[in-house]
Amino acid sequence: MKITVEEEKCCGAGQCVLIAPEVFDQRDDDGIVILLDAAPAEDQHEQVREAAAVCPAACIHLDDNA
């Protein structure tokens, strides 16, 4: 799995951090998403998929073939 995020679409909700804190964080100054791990281990995949699904700005993209 390969994750990409569109920073300019991110609204700073932090829902992704609540669901997958090992993969996502937020910048201190403006809350924009920080991708901690762009190719997380298998045991993180389910949380990452849920984070992408609930992202209210639809700015988390997953490539399962990578």
Partner: peptide
């Protein structure tokens, strides 16, 4: 409520 503090507000949530 966070006013230009999205991360901090989320932590306080």
């Amino acid at each position: 409520l966070g006013w230009n503090m999205p991360k901090q507000a989320r932590v306080q949530r």
